[in-house]
Design a protein around this nucleic acid. Structure first.
Ligand SMILES: [Fe+3]
Ligand SMILES: [Fe+3]
Length: 986
DNA sequence: AACAAAAAAAAA
């Protein structure tokens, strides 16, 4: 096939890439360079084809195939989109941007008619491309709907699909598209592309087949990915300016692909011949002699029985091997449904860090039919760079000595900018083409905070890349019960999309309220239905009388039979499945040890607490005191420290990361599981009191002899109770503490249905009162059995059934109404930041808010609710410069320079000094605090990714700072405290 | 006078 355009073709003078000559400093004597437009387009088409053939995998390809006829056509349509993605660059509005190149085109017959570089912003080339491709498809016989569905991919190839308003504006500016000479050149270019890249059949598909929203999402993602790779001058060399490129598209792409060296995609092997136990033993080196437990058996069975991609919810307590169960099931599902990787989402960075190591070990054991020993794996969260495991593991899987490319694409990649972008500007440009976060979507295996899954449903720039990445991974979500109302809004929308993209999902959880279980199941089912092929003969909708004349017909015929209802049951552990529209459930009989907790009230005045502890800890032992607010926790900590007879520790989230990590580690060391050879008396547990906020609720595997907790929603109370006699310590516990006891504070049942204002602010009134009612049933009476009683208590707490006492009913009903309204408001606000549901719109047009303000789009919306709090890096101001908080300094004091970029080691130390400032500070004192923090802005630090954009809070040597009227103080034992001077002086 | 915990943030 002839790849060089006819010498007379004017389009060969059009340009796509033109690095400024300043970019090639450092004795680069080659002079200015360029890349002709037609070369960039064939490059991108070649890469897109390779991505489809080698990287994408059958699962997502089939989603596209469903719209266009088959997998071959799917690959072709992707190549077509890639081949024309920058057609909008063949317009005077784009081409006028660089004088040199503009003049060259002008000299070769392209009239500019006064269009200058200043006009380029009025017609971004993506938008121009949308208009041009739409017109071209319509001329080739497509209807408007089909043409728009394809054109919007071109319009959105920079991450934001156009809005209808933008299209309208573009149509009013024909001058920006240029006169006939330009239109002719574009037609010749299209003709050249169709011939050279062999895309005539693809065009026929594009003019006759309507792409669904899901296909639009995936293809846009693929085009962006291909464009990024094809835009790397390191892989696709530029030519001296105005010289033609002589290498053929195929050769260029072949060389680039080699150099890129993407690890071959994971191809899981079918494992039908192994039972759950055999599977378990072969995938986990530490479990050679273990037998699969019922939860693991059921998970494997559920995965094997799934007739099509579906949802599997596993509710079980921590410690029954849910992680193993999820990985076994994930491997089976990946093999069955053509997935090429796994996304493992965790609620916190700390849990993600811990899971990272476990998954790497598992990966070493998992068979791969691709024959490759290199796996592409990424740890994706904000402080992944601080994880020490990353430094030890990377090279393990590299087949060959790691080069820069290896760091990017094979072995372990981390989610951050590469060190030392070096002073050579052109290097920096090359290196950063796939910088950081957005590159991570290429990986087969992702361990991340759930946020990265939720963000797939966030209406923000480049969300299509997240969707594309997830579309080829089995998604496992851990601790889904922990999602609050805000996050749940994103979770459900993201789940609809996963279902639409035919992605199997495994959700792990503690006991779910039946309502949440139902929401998860129905969200997945809605997404699945959105992807069902429309019925052959569309039903004619009878127009209901009185409806607006212009009411639109539904996008396509949707199955309107009722959504499946998962069975409401108190079985536990519980596996709920949903596949092919059918919901099922299985429960396992599993012999976990039961803990019987006796419950009692303890009135608030701190003397009661002191007396209780004096008695109970008389013979030793340890107690956990959980408070609903930091303020209460600090108060109780201080009251307890003033008394002898025990050692007190305080734990909450307002510690700098380094201290928090150390505190957590100490808690695990002192109160964690006993050694495998059996429990021994542990002096660290002797007369210890830990006062904590909700940080003690989750993820920390610790055990206490006695629990005192503020009233909280029942599921959280039960989580806290889970810290009571959690490990087998038998008779090493003091005699009087051998019966597990839980005292509830923050509530006086005799005083009526009145909850503590702090708790009310955090949880709302209604769940607290419901919890109080349920606990009353057990006070002084029968113990709460863990985990057996958990499902019943959780179900009743969130059901409508009235609870005694009857006199509280009215208060509770009123509270329920208020809480519901508040919750509805939160989810409405969250929903304004989500993308559309699958099947709700014909195209991605206007899906994201007005582009142009690119950064605003990214920043203004988020998957976590904004409470006004913000993070600062806490450093000390010494006479001769900055230093780390002095309690962190080991050895020689380290002075931190502010006039140059700190080295990597120092930057990590500084990043570990991050702490969150409570929300009320910014709500009431925003301007004065910002003004004060702004003074500590060091331009030289902004080049360091770990420090860029961070606020710095400087404390004096006494550990305090005055910002306006606010006084900040920090100590490694009590954490960050902020007080308002104007108030305390009164 | 507030009031938990939790996370994130660079193009072709
Ligand atoms: Fe572009
Ligand atoms: Fe491009």
């Amino acid at each position: 096939m002839r790849h060089t355009p006819h010498p007379a073709s004017p389009f060969q003078h059009a340009w796509a890439k033109a690095p400024y000559s300043d970019d090639s400093i450092e004795g680069d004597l080659e002079g200015p360079q360029w890349l002709p437009l037609h070369v960039h387009l064939t490059d991108t088409a070649e890469i897109a084809g390779r991505l489809c053939r080698e990287w994408l995998g059958p699962g997502p390809l089939d989603v596209i195939a469903q719209d266009v006829g088959g997998p071959t056509e799917a690959g072709e349509i992707v190549r077509l989109a890639a081949a024309v993605h920058d057609l909008g660059k063949l317009t005077p509005a784009f081409a006028a941007q660089v004088d040199d190149l503009r003049n060259h085109m002008h000299a070769n017959g392209f009239p500019f008619n006064g269009i200058t570089a200043a006009h380029s912003r009025e017609l971004p080339h993506g938008l121009a491309g949308h208009v041009l491709i739409h017109r071209f498809l319509v001329e080739a016989g497509a209807n408007d709907e089909i043409a728009t569905a394809f054109a919007v991919i071109i319009g959105g190839h920079h991450g934001v699909p156009p809005t209808s308003a933008q299209l309208l504006q573009a149509h009013h500016r024909p001058d920006l598209f240029g006169p006939k000479e330009w239109a002719d050149a574009r037609h010749q270019l299209l003709d050249y592309l169709l011939t050279t890249a062999n895309l005539r059949d693809a065009l026929r598909v594009a003019t006759t087949k309507k792409l669904s929203d899901a296909a639009q999402v995936l293809i846009t993602g693929l085009v962006i990915m291909a464009d990024w790779i094809a835009s790397s001058a390191d892989h696709f060399p530029l030519a001296p300016r105005f010289n033609p490129v002589k290498t053929s598209p195929h050769e260029r792409a072949e060389a680039a692909w080699q150099k890129l060296a993407l690890p071959r995609r994971w191809q899981p092997a079918p494992v039908e011949n192994l039972d759950a136990t055999e599977l378990l033993r072969s995938r986990f080196t530490g479990l050679q002699h273990v037998t699969a437990n019922p939860v693991q058996e059921l998970a494997v069975e559920a995965a094997r029985n799934m007739p099509e991609p579906g949802l599997l919810i596993v509710e079980a307590v921590m410690g029954v091997g849910k992680t193993e169960a999820s990985l076994l099931a994930a491997e089976i599902l990946a093999a069955k449904f053509g997935m090429s990787g796994i996304f493992y989402g965790l609620p916190t960075r700390a849990t993600a860090d811990a899971m990272f190591v476990r998954i790497t070990r598992w990966l070493e054991q998992v068979p791969d039919r691709s024959g490759s020993s290199v796996k592409s794996l990424v740890l994706r969260h904000g402080t992944a760079a601080l994880n020490p495991d990353l430094e030890t593991i990377p090279r393990q899987w590299a087949d060959h000595p790691p080069t820069f490319d290896d760091a990017q694409f094979s072995g372990v990649g981390i989610d951050e900018n590469v060190d030392d972008l070096s002073s050579r500007a052109i290097q920096a440009v090359v290196h950063s083409w796939t910088s950081a976060h957005k590159r991570a979507s290429l990986a087969d295996f992702t361990i991340a905070t759930v946020d990265h899954q939720l963000m797939a449903a966030l209406a923000a720039r480049h969300f299509v890349l997240r969707q594309l990445g997830l579309s080829r991974q089995v998604v496992v979500l851990d601790e889904v019960h922990a999602a609050d109302t805000w996050m749940r809004t994103f979770l459900l929308r993201a789940l609809e999309w996963l279902a639409r993209l035919r992605v199997p999902v495994i959700a792990l959880s503690a006991t779910l309220a039946p309502e949440l279980r139902r929401e998860l199941v129905q969200a997945y089912e809605r997404g699945r239905r959105a992807g069902l092929p429309p019925p052959a003969v569309p039903k004619v909708q009878p127009r209901p009388a009185g409806r607006l004349k212009h009411s639109k017909p539904p996008i396509h015929q949707v199955d309107d039979t009722p959504l499946p209802e998962p069975l409401v049951t108190d079985d536990y552990p519980l596996l709920t499945t949903l596949a092919a529209g059918q919901s099922g459930h299985r429960s396992a009989t599993i012999s976990t040890s039961t803990v019987e907790v006796r419950v009692d009230w303890l009135l608030d005045p701190v003397e009661h607490l002191l007396n209780l502890l004096k008695n109970e800890l008389a013979d030793g032992g340890c107690a956990l005191v959980v408070c609903n607010t930091v303020k209460r926790a600090v108060e109780r900590y201080q009251a307890l420290t003033g008394t002898s007879g025990w050692t007190v520790t305080l734990a909450h989230s307002r510690f700098i990361a380094a201290d928090r990590m150390r505190n957590d580690a100490e808690l695990r060391a002192d109160f964690g599981p006993p050694d495998a050879d059996g429990p021994a008396p542990n002096p660290a547990r002797d007369r210890r009191v830990v006062v904590a906020t909700q940080v003690a609720e989750q993820s920390l595997d610790v055990d206490f002899d006695l629990l005192i907790t503020d009233l909280a929603p029942i599921d959280l109370i039960l989580q806290r109770m889970g810290r009571l006699h959690r490990h087998p310590r038998g008779d090493t516990r003091p005699t009087r503490l051998r019966t597990p006891r839980c005292l509830i504070t923050g509530f006086d049942p005799a005083a009526g249905p009145i909850v503590d204002p702090g708790g009310k602010h955090v949880y709302g009134e209604h769940p607290l009162l419901r919890a109080a009612c349920l606990l009353t049933e057990h006070v002084g009476g029968k113990a709460i059995r863990l985990p057996g009683d958990v499902p019943t208590l959780v179900r009743r707490a969130y059901a409508d059934e009235p609870l005694r006492p009857d006199e509280w009913q009215q208060t509770m009903d009123d509270a329920a109404v208020r809480d519901n309204e508040a919750r509805l408001k939160v989810s409405r606000n969250a929903a304004s930041g989500t993308i559309q549901s699958p099947g709700a719109t014909r195209s991605l047009l206007s899906w994201l808010p007005t582009p142009g303000a690119k950064t605003e789009i990214d920043a203004a919306r988020q998957v976590r609710q904004d409470d006004g709090g913000f993070e600062v890096l806490l450093l000390e101001q010494a006479e001769d410069g900055l230093r780390l908080p002095h309690h962190l300094e080991t050895g020689a004091p380290m002075r931190i320079p502010t006039d140059c970029r700190p080295d990597r080691v120092a930057a990590k130390e500084i990043a570990r000094c991050a702490v969150r400032v409570p929300g009320w500070v910014s709500e009431r004192h925003l301007t004065e605090v910002i003004a004060a923090l702004n003074e500590n802005y060091y331009p030289a630090w902004q080049k360091e990714p770990l420090l860029a954009g961070q606020w710095i809070l400087l404390l004096g040597p006494d550990g305090t700072a005055q910002l306006g009227s606010l006084r900040f103080s920090y100590s490694p034992t009590t954490g960050l405290e902020v007080s308002d001077g104007r108030i305390t002086e009164r």
